[in-house]
Amino acid sequence: MNIIEIKDLSFLYSEEEGLVLRDINLNIEKGEWVAILGHNGSGKSTLSKLIVGLLEKKSGSIIVNEKELCVGNEYEIRESISIVFQNPDNQFVGATVKDDIAFGLENQLLTREEMIKRIDYYSKKVNMHGFLNKEPHNLSGGEKQRVAIAGALAMDTEIIILDEATSMLDPRGKSEVIETIKSLQDGDKTIITITHELSEAVLCDRVIVLNKGRIVLDGAPKEVFKERELIVEAGLDILPTLKVLDKLEEENIDNDKLKEILWELSLTM
């Protein structure tokens, strides 16, 4: 079942600047974990804001969870999507970390116990339990990102969009969040990860590459990353293991076992 269906979507902020997204056609299945990659300004954040109804599309259609997004029903759509913004400060509303996570839950008609349980659970999940009474704006960069992630996950929506949500976490923190996301996906959640980290993208089911507002690649990571030319054109980089393979070839080092291992490895790191 497609949980998101986007047809012929185009978007611009202003005439001078021109189209920022062009003819986007994209179906995302329930339970998929999709990575969106692309150069700075390729339209990734714009696309995510259109999907949650924060920006108004100019043409085309967006269907989320079988409902067509139009002016007036953004709130209904947002019941099934939560998003972590690129700058976590843009989403803090509470005076404390605890209030902030609670805020998103307030519209969900939860019992007090359930609310406390969720705040507890998700703040522990991102290692921020000790910070519940701190002000979100007085945290370090990585701490802010952890709180923003906890806030989005606590909403327990069917779709979760993460816009460079782990970019400031330390290596350990990043892998912990990725583990959490994997377990959510096992619970049939749909995850869209916008990222510049190829090592994260290779772990997803599917990779979509944007270049100047258009989708130029869409497929399984092992298919997408093979397309070296298109990858480089889109401002990305060739996977490190593939670079090693290319270099071995260049230097005429022929070792089948080595090549095989490097291939396998390319999809894990």
Binding site: N40, S42, E164, M168, H196, L198, G235, L236
Partner: peptide, 13 residues
């Protein structure tokens, strides 16, 4: 402070 965060892979390099 974290100059490569938010840059695309080629931009980082």
């Amino acid at each position: 402070d974290e100059p490569t965060v938010g840059l695309d892979p080629q931009g980082q390099i």
